[in-house]
Simulated assay, not measured.
Amino acid sequence: MTSDSPVRGIDHVGITVPDLEAATAFFVQALGAKVLYDTLAKGQPPQEGEDLERRLRFLRGSSIRAMRLLRLGNGPSLELFEYAAPEQRPPARPNDFGLQHFAVYVEDMDAALARFQAAGGEVFSRPHELPPLEQGPGNAFCYARAPWGTVIEFISYPSPQPYENQTALRRWKPPQRD
């Protein structure tokens, strides 16, 4: 199948965190993330000023204190940002406009959720069966929240899904681990 879109896929998801080191430790412990590099290490001069405020639509007086890229399994990276700003709000709730969560594919839902909780995350409920066009044995999802409020969905769909009978297109799924 060919496409006229220049987009190849999602490269990374950016997340603002209150403490870069604590968030990194959480993602390493909870999701097995690995640190790739620091774009702006703590202790370096912050990125700030009118040009940055204009480019990123920051509130006046905001600055980036630290940035780090994490590798998360076989999918997009996570880019963590620690900002200083005159006014910061908690993350959006799923019913608010804007990016509301990211999802991680897991082989073992119970083990993944236990690891997430042990790292300090909050699991909202027990895993639920996926909706009708995604249902199948073992196909499930569960929402959870990182300690600073970012919502993360855990999802697994080892069985064929009913939508596959309606289209030749398939959703992207991380490859099996060796």
Score class of each variant (00 low, 15 high):
R8P: 02
L133N: 08
T2Q: 05
L133S: 07
L78Y: 12
G75T: 07
F116V: 09
P174I: 11
D4V: 05
L40G: 04
C142A: 10
P160I: 08
D96N: 12
Q88F: 03
D51R: 13
V106L: 12
P137F: 01
V151N: 04
Q166W: 10
R177A: 15
S5N: 03
D4R: 02
A25E: 13
E82G: 08
H101P: 01
V17P: 00
F27E: 01
G73M: 08
L59M: 11
L56S: 09
R57P: 00
E153K: 09
L80Y: 05
D38S: 11
A118C: 03
P127Y: 07
L52W: 12
A85T: 14
D38G: 02
P160A: 10
R126S: 11
Q29I: 01
G9C: 02
N139M: 10
Y105H: 12
L59Y: 09
Q161T: 13
V35R: 13
D110W: 03
A119C: 05
K173A: 14
V151C: 06
L113N: 01
Q100N: 11
L78N: 04
S63N: 10
Q166M: 11
R171W: 11
Q166D: 10
A119V: 01
L169E: 05
P76D: 07
G98W: 13
L80W: 08
R115P: 06
A144S: 13
I10D: 01
P160G: 07
E87K: 13
N139Y: 11
P137M: 09
K34D: 13
V28T: 15
